[in-house]
Write a protein that binds this DNA or RNA. Structure first.
Lengths: 124, 124
DNA sequence: TTAGTTTTGATAGTTGACTCTCATATGCTG
DNA sequence: CAGCATATGAGAGTCAACTATCAAAACTAA
């Protein structure tokens, strides 16, 4: 049975407190503030465990590295800034998306991603 | 200035004639029928040139390898079968997608992907 | 055709995202 | 707190998708 360690607690806290999906490296950076010796392998191991337990979700977006977010966040989609590569959340969803499939196709889920520039990069 | 070679002509023809997006390996396989000695590096070089010229478009979908398609194909989105990993085209698009972005964000494009099972895999 | 430039194919190398290994450290249970 | 199970960190290894290298071949303009 898994042990509860400082590293896992910090990694979990970082994900839970973030207001956007994070990459394993983002998480490692942020967690090092509390546990400076933290290795990337430990972050990956923690993420794997959390995803299996169901507390964290993998977010895959074309054109971006894999990100992770806490499952408590509701159904939503993403905005990927082409300049800084940051992923932002979009609130809400468009109706009728699943109806785009032709008959005979069974839709299980969908993903919507907008691409462009975020306010910060537009200002710079 | 770029030369016009047999290899590039074949690669271009393969992409143009396909009714779905292809991976570099798909393209290499198909083109080898005409140019058996074709190397994968040449396919990548041709793809890079075509994308720069604007005649071919890169299609990135999470859960699938990078695919390429001819730009003459109209705006559309994709259905990824989770079983056979084939990418299918969807006709049409949903209105109001770009309006999902909060003010301050500049949207350039969007991508919609449906995930599920295709008719063939459902039948099997 | 010739001369110069570009392209090709085979293969080695690179990159990013993990995953494994193992000695050491930490957490848990009695 | 003793003793065993699990976890950690550092670095090596893996894997897929490219990308660089370079001698030989193909292309183009004159």
């Amino acid at each position: 049975m898994p042990y509860t360690t400082q590293q896992k607690l910090i990694v979990s806290a970082v994900i839970e407190k973030s207001n956007r999906p994070l990459t394993p490296l983002d998480i490692c950076e942020a967690a090092k503030v509390k546990v400076p010796s933290l290795g990337i392998a430990t972050v990956y191991r923690a993420l794997k465990q959390f995803v299996e337990e169901g507390s964290v979700r993998l977010v895959e977006v074309p054109g971006a590295a894999p990100h992770y977010e806490h499952v408590s966040r509701q159904h939503h989609h993403f905005f990927l800034c082409k300049q800084c590569k940051h992923l932002f959340d979009l609130v809400g969803c468009v109706r009728g998306v699943n109806a785009m499939a032709p008959s005979g196709f069974q839709v299980e889920s969908h993903e919507i991603v907008l691409y462009g520039s975020c306010p910060d990069c537009l200002a710079a």
